[in-house]
Design a binder for these strands. Sequence first.
DNA 1: ATAGCGTACAACCATATGGTTGTACATCAA
DNA 2: TTGATGTACAACCATATGGTTGTACGCTAT
Lengths: 104, 104
Amino acid sequence: MDLVFRALADTTRRDIFQRVIGDGLSVSSLADDYEMSFAAVQKHVSVLERAALVTKERHGREQIVHGNLSTLRRAAALLDAFEEIWIGRATKIAEILGEKGSAT
Amino acid sequence: MDLVFRALADTTRRDIFQRVIGDGLSVSSLADDYEMSFAAVQKHVSVLERAALVTKERHGREQIVHGNLSTLRRAAALLDAFEEIWIGRATKIAEILGEKGSAT
DNA sequence: ATAGCGTACAACCATATGGTTGTACATCAA
DNA sequence: TTGATGTACAACCATATGGTTGTACGCTAT
């Protein structure tokens, strides 16, 4: 999970990820749209790959980057779990206050 | 957003955050439960604070750390947005396949 | 065969991160 | 007042990160 959130903690990588979810893209076509060097983009893709947020599929001489939704879902589930902890607390507060059914 | 995901990209910090959502805790009571030094925990809290995932409320000589749910929600919303992009693509595929209403 | 494209990877650099220890200071209790 | 507690912060260190350039190598097209 550390790897997943670390991978998402960069604007360029979130942008790459977003572009790649909808449709697979080659590394070079990704790289074309950023100011930085090709190698830098390659590294960003590599970070996403190690976090299992994307996978690469070789196609001829090109390497197509695809988004991996299941990892994204695991991260989203974790954030949801945090929120549920808070809901649990709110419920407890409501119980203490003798209120029913309406959470703030 | 970079700050938020970076803050969440550490097991200790996620643990701190989780413990603090349900109930506010002083920095020292947080620090008691980790092997590392007090200063290290202080730094972790500071990272969470800069990301606006927690706030500190002074109470006497203690500083109570509270979770900030709204920032959590912003992060969760971003992940949901990614997922919706994928759903959009799935819908398109479904359209292409002539299927209706059932996404895989 | 050969030239160009797409990719991989190593070496290098500056800065950020995660940890430490030490010091300082305000607050609560005796 | 004095001492212990809770916090803040600076200095320092090792390692990770995000960028660069350069080199190598497999594919594609001519």
